[in-house]
Amino acid sequence: MAKNRKVILIITILYTVLILYFMFFAFGRIGASHQITEYEFIFTPLDFYHVPDLTDLFRFSLMALFGFGNFAAFIPFGFLIPMLFPMRYVRFITLFFLSIMVVETVQMLSYLGSGDINDAIQNSIGASIGYAAYKLGSNAKTIKKQLVISGFSALFIFAAVWGCCEVIETALTKKEGPFIAINEVKDASGNTVQHTAPYRFELGREQVLPQYNVFSFKEQTAAVYTSELRGRDIILYFKYGATGKLGGTLAISVDGQQLLLTEAPTYQEGTAETYEIPIEKANKLTITVKGNARLWDLGYREMKYFWN
């Protein structure tokens, strides 16, 4: 028994050194530390439930590797520590979490990483998986059976936790809805934006045929268009260019706050610019077009939770 304990202790020390190496020195941390000028510590648990997609793992994405490692790399501690120092789960996870927070703080103070409570939570979830698997296999009569049962249990529990995290992330993450042309949106009176029917025009030497709408003006003053979005979280999409030698300007504001003021490319440039602008809690959208500017295929995708 003493011999087995000695072997487990050596394995624990070596594995701990390996983990600390990856946390402090791997992935170019030393070189990156010279570019860090201030401490960064994330105190608020925000995305500890985030897990990489399986497709990302198969592509060996570095960020996916980090996300996977934050859980999986700490599972062995759930086996090794209780085998060395038998203790109840509450005491085990409390000591483990505090230890990880110390490591995260040292990472921050040494500029070899940022302190992040989300990483500490993910590490602790991994250790909890290992602890649960260890307990499930601890009643086996032989060490071989104990390792087999614990190993398969760890895989099963890890898959279950991964699936739960996917469900939580899906429930708490907004996704883009279908594209809605702005001229299809009705205001409180049931009216839509007028004088925006699509028509063919020339941009530089190319013919442009908008699919949904065109915002422009044919008078001596600027054309102003307004639309009611009723507090939606959206991503605004549109294309923008100028059809004449003098160019033009575009201004976009939401609820009186200006989001964009830009000049259109000139006739000589003959190019169009494509924009994607995220806007939160949008109510009144105001578009102001001057000069020979053309704004077309203006619309948005609403950011929604899946249950909406």
Results as ranks from 00 to 15, higher is better:
74 F>D: 06
74 F>A: 06
88 R>C: 04
225 Y>I: 02
168 I>H: 02
274 T>V: 11
281 K>D: 14
79 F>K: 04
186 K>I: 01
2 A>F: 10
126 G>W: 01
38 E>T: 12
81 I>T: 03
92 F>C: 08
268 Q>D: 14
85 F>L: 14
23 M>G: 03
175 K>S: 13
231 G>H: 12
244 G>M: 11
304 K>F: 03
188 A>N: 11
190 G>M: 05
107 Q>K: 05
228 E>P: 02
154 A>D: 07
54 L>V: 15
214 V>M: 08
56 D>A: 13
55 T>I: 10
262 T>A: 12
75 I>N: 02
252 I>W: 13
161 V>M: 12
265 P>I: 01
290 K>S: 15
269 E>W: 04
168 I>T: 04
19 I>L: 14
177 G>V: 03
279 I>K: 10
266 T>Q: 13
263 E>F: 09
73 A>D: 01
132 A>P: 01
89 Y>F: 15
173 T>V: 07
247 G>R: 08
24 F>L: 10
218 K>C: 04
178 P>V: 06
28 G>P: 05
294 R>L: 02
260 L>P: 08
48 F>P: 00
117 I>Y: 03
42 I>F: 12
15 Y>N: 01
235 I>C: 08
56 D>N: 08
4 N>R: 15
43 F>I: 13
104 E>V: 02
212 Y>E: 15
276 E>R: 13
61 S>P: 06
270 G>L: 07
114 S>K: 12
302 E>V: 03
116 D>S: 07
112 L>A: 04
152 F>Y: 14
117 I>H: 03
293 A>N: 04
26 A>R: 06
103 V>N: 03
122 Q>A: 14
306 F>G: 02
230 R>W: 11
224 V>L: 14
70 N>Q: 13
120 A>T: 01
273 E>G: 00
200 R>N: 13
150 S>C: 09
111 Y>W: 09
85 F>H: 08
207 Q>A: 10
283 N>Q: 12
66 F>R: 15
95 L>E: 04
58 F>C: 01
192 T>E: 12
206 E>D: 14
141 K>P: 00
